[in-house]
Design a protein around this nucleic acid. Structure first.
Length: 341
DNA sequence: AATGCGGGGGT
DNA sequence: ACCCCAGCATT
């Protein structure tokens, strides 16, 4: 039997993915896609990637962009610190590295938003530099292949997996190998119902030999998620609504949002928020917005106003709200209650 | 070493 | 309603 990497490389040439929009020898596209793919699946990323490439074809274009435009394009993708780091990194690549992404993963990792795995992916995929990666797919493949009884989330476990990933990474054809590990995890060694019959490394897969593939990786300790009620206050004046920028830290940082209250605001509070005359208040039906660390129950509060000076900068035309860059719950309220897309 | 950060899919 | 997934930065 050929060694681990050769079987994967051969498999990748025949059965791997070759038509993903970022699969060109272009470090900018590889970098952009890898940032978007952090904690995010390929199907979700593709439309965002296409939009970004259309607006910013090169790293220079991105570096010259206004942060507000980048946030607006990123809106809906989540983990918004990624977007701010993306812009900061683009600017550093242009100013420090003359617009050329470094090849050395130890240098790449110093750029904002690039950790060890992303640095390895860029170095390997864009430049063929031998560097290991350890994303969710690779973690699952390694844990199963070696029958490691672990979740892979603990620090010591990650250390062991990194060492393993490093040891298995070949020096030849490293780009194909890296794509193979990603594709195998996505297409064959899926979390549920892996298809071992078509797996190129099933022959020496330890979990398969023991019949425990479905049990690995072990479930992680799940943190308690606290439930929180929020009220999003939709202040309406004519064809405009009031949006304010979220603080630069915390949830939805830097995005435009309806005012957030932790309790149903009474008429007095609403008047303070609004600075006009309240004509009508009604509450919509609550909906759930689940995050990893919070379980938000959100109730829209619709407030019709008169006598407000709409010239102030926070009053946004209804038709322009989505393009402004808003979190998903805001988009949802706009689409559900204000009939605009 | 622990915590915070979005959104989506399946059942 | 519940389950699950997926990297980096900050402190």
């Amino acid at each position: 039997m050929e060694n681990f990497s050769n079987r994967l490389i051969s498999w990748q040439r025949h059965y791997g993915r070759h038509d993903l929009p970022w699969q060109q020898p272009d470090a900018y596209r590889v970098w952009l896609s890898e940032i978007m793919l952090q904690q995010t699946q390929v199907v979700t990323v593709i439309p965002y990637f296409q939009k970004f490439i259309a607006c910013f074809p090169t790293v220079q274009d991105l570096a010259g962009a206004a942060e507000a435009d980048v946030m607006a394009l990123w809106a809906g993708l989540g983990y918004y610190a990624r977007a701010r780091h993306l812009l900061a990194a683009a600017r550093q690549v242009v100013t420090i590295y003359a617009g050329v992404f470094p090849k050395d993963p130890d240098v790449l990792v110093q750029l904002p938003g690039i950790g060890r795995s992303t640095a390895g992916a860029i170095a390997a995929l864009a430049y063929g530099v031998r560097a290991p990666i350890l994303d969710g797919n690779v973690r699952r493949v390694l844990i199963r292949h070696q029958a490691l009884r672990m979740s892979g989330r603990e620090l010591a476990e990650q250390k062991q997996l990194w060492a393993l990933a490093d040891a298995l990474t070949p020096s030849k054809d490293v780009a194909i190998y890296t794509q193979a590990m990603m594709d195998l995890g996505a297409l064959v060694c899926q979390r549920k119902q892996p298809d071992c019959s078509i797996c190129p490394i099933a022959g020496d897969c330890q979990s398969r030999q023991r019949g425990i593939t479905d049990l690995l990786p072990l479930p992680a300790n799940k943190p308690v998620v606290q439930r929180k009620n929020l009220w999003l206050v939709v202040l309406m004046a004519g064809d405009r609504v009031w949006l304010e920028r979220r603080p630069s830290r915390g949830i939805w940082a830097g995005l435009w949002c309806f005012p957030v209250c932790d309790a149903l605001p009474d008429a007095t509070q609403i008047t303070q928020l609004a600075g006009g005359v309240v004509v009508d208040i009604s509450t919509g039906s609550a909906f759930r917005h689940a995050l990893t660390h919070r379980d938000l129950h959100i109730t829209p509060v619709m407030v019709k106003l008169s006598g407000v000076s709409v010239q102030t900068s926070g009053w946004i035309r209804l038709s322009a709200v989505i393009a402004q860059g808003v979190p998903v719950p805001v988009k949802r309220i706009v689409e559900e209650y204000l009939h605009v897309d």
